[in-house]
Amino acid sequence: MIGAVELGLIYAVMALGVYLTFRILDFPDLTVDGSFTTGGATAAILIVGGVNPVLATAAGGAAGLVAGTITGLLHTKGGINPLLAGILTQVGLYSINLRIMDGANVPLLRYDTLLTPLRDNDLLGTAASIGIFAALVLAIKVVMDWFLNTDLGLAVQATGDNQGMIRSFGVSTHATKILGLALSNGLVALCGALIAQYQGFADISMGIGLIIAGLASVILGQALIPPRIVVIATFAVILGSILYRVAIQIALQVGLDPNDMKLVSAVLVVLALVLPKWSVLRRVPSIRSIRRSAAVEPTAGDR
């Protein structure tokens, strides 16, 4: 179970990225499945090549920034619908990821990674490692909270709320969308780089279906803590990520097949999206109204 909490904390970095696009920008970004692997692949190949793991991890995150920028350009300058723009980047990244790794996977077990100190001292799966991962995630959360409350961050938030309004105050919504997508995929790829080191390898399928895990984390967390302000919302996302991994762990322990987990996740997200639309359950926060629920009228899910 401690392993699940660890995983939940690391994957929370990805979930924060998903929160940034889905909730803040109101942009359903499917780049995630590809950019996560890009982050893992980039970090892994650099580590194998002898690059310092800290730099390799940062490079993984930077690759995600580029991936997000591409989706942003496809959508804004190319006029491509958000879902399609994300899918196009994701599919393109599949080939790029194979190129980066020069194959379908890169094992890391014999190399020094960010996690080697923890592994060598038998700290993985203990309170110490949880403390370290929690500190890392909270640091990212604090930076994200700060950013979203700067002048620029407020403009990004307003872009997801009312584009006409924020444009009328002199902000290019093209720029804010590209920025948001870049930052989001940067976080996702950073998470991919960490996961590759945590599991000891990068492989081409490590990102498949990840967007559902990200969404499930965001929805789960915000159902438990209705967020009113960014600071609380980002905390809820982290909590949601941990709960999601714990739930998966429990499902596995009661004997569910690991191969069924993606289906279970997808069904969970579908329920979270559909249930709030039934009038009896209107009071359960819906996918849209959970974003700072206080703001929204009861039917906001249909807006």
Binding site: F169, R292, V296
Partner: peptide, 23 residues
Amino acid sequence: TATTMTIEENLSIALARGRGRGL
């Protein structure tokens, strides 16, 4: 207005009208 944002956030956005927005 941006309806999911607070009054003070909306006013801050408006006050920066047409100026560069930084950190």
